[in-house]
């Protein structure tokens, strides 16, 4: 069953983030993805997250697709204007990529090319409307297309972020949902309690919420996120647990697997596993769920 069918059937989906390389050598990305073929429903290919230049999501997604792997292509508002966004959507669909995820994209000032100009010609709702228009056979100028693409569209929502009010999040979900978003990926979640205010009130029939499960790599990383990343809440007990573990990496892998099991039990639509550079740990995480 493909990602779209699984989401429609309300089955728990497993997405794995797969960063394309900073360079032209795709062997590692392909190897890591192939290792978990059959265990993952689709690979989410980020579009230069944190404004760090690397291979495009379209390129990465096409390469994985050519290996028989299902992908979710990301599109950000930062790097392209409405012409290029629509053109890449058509290109993606023409190459058989039918899952897209729209994101705003961090400001170039935060990345490794901080002198670059951000584009932000379209905002998320406008991009979603453009995708909807393309699917109806017209571009943003109203001109008829020679063949309309079809997409499963996802986006992100800050559910579980400790600095966001649940009302605003629910509002976002409604607005983006009405604009055609079928699944929502949240920031990293370490504690169910953080997402509960949204989860309790969201229309679960209509909305597929997919929390991100981030693999912690060390005690230092956990502490850093807990202290400095506003939207991610890591409970002290979790930090103590890593601190007390004889094999910290193993413990972090276990925490990720455990979180996935919990989210599945709670009825979430799925998870997105983010391993940022440790994609080779995916099999271990997935084995334990």
């Amino acid at each position: 069953m493909g990602l779209q069918q699984k989401i429609e059937a309300k089955e728990f989906v497993i997405l794995a983030e797969m960063e394309p390389p900073k360079g032209a050598d795709v062997s590692r990305m392909v190897k890591n993805a192939q290792k978990v073929k059959g265990m993952v429903d689709a690979f989410v290919v980020p579009e230069m997250s944190n404004a760090v230049m690397r291979m495009s999501s379209l390129g990465g997604a096409m390469i994985l697709k050519s290996k028989g792997l299902e992908t979710v292509m990301q599109l950000n508002c930062r790097d392209r204007n409405r012409l290029a966004l629509q053109a890449d959507l058509l290109a993606a669909n023409g190459c058989g990529i039918s899952n897209v995820m729209v994101v705003k994209g961090e400001d170039p000032g935060l990345g490794d090319h901080h002198q670059a100009r951000g584009v932000y010609d379209l905002d998320l709702p406008e991009l979603l409307a453009a995708i909807d228009g393309l699917q109806q056979g017209r571009d943003m100028a109203g001109i008829e297309l020679n063949g309309a693409p079809e997409f499963l569209v996802g986006s992100t929502v800050e559910a579980g972020a400790r600095d966001k009010s649940p009302e605003l999040i629910l509002d976002d979900i409604n607005r983006l949902g009405q604009a055609g978003t079928r699944f929502f990926i949240t920031p990293p979640l370490f504690d169910l309690a953080a997402i509960e205010p949204v989860w309790k009130r969201v229309n679960r029939e209509k909305t597929t919420v997919i929390p991100t499960v981030l693999l912690l790599k060390s005690l230092g990383m956990a502490r850093y996120i807990a202290r400095n990343v506003n939207h991610t809440f890591i409970p002290d007990t979790l930090i103590e647990r890593i601190q007390g573990a004889p094999d910290k990496v193993r413990e972090c892998i276990e925490i990720a697997s455990e979180t996935i099991r919990t989210l599945k039990k709670e009825g979430f639509g799925g998870v997105q596993i983010a391993t940022i550079g440790w994609e080779d740990k995916l099999p271990e995480i997935l084995k334990r769920i």
Partner: peptide, 12 residues
């Protein structure tokens, strides 16, 4: 030379 747009609107 490559223009530094960080003094333009890049960077808020």
């Amino acid at each position: 030379p490559l223009k530094d747009w960080s003094t333009d609107r890049a960077g808020g």
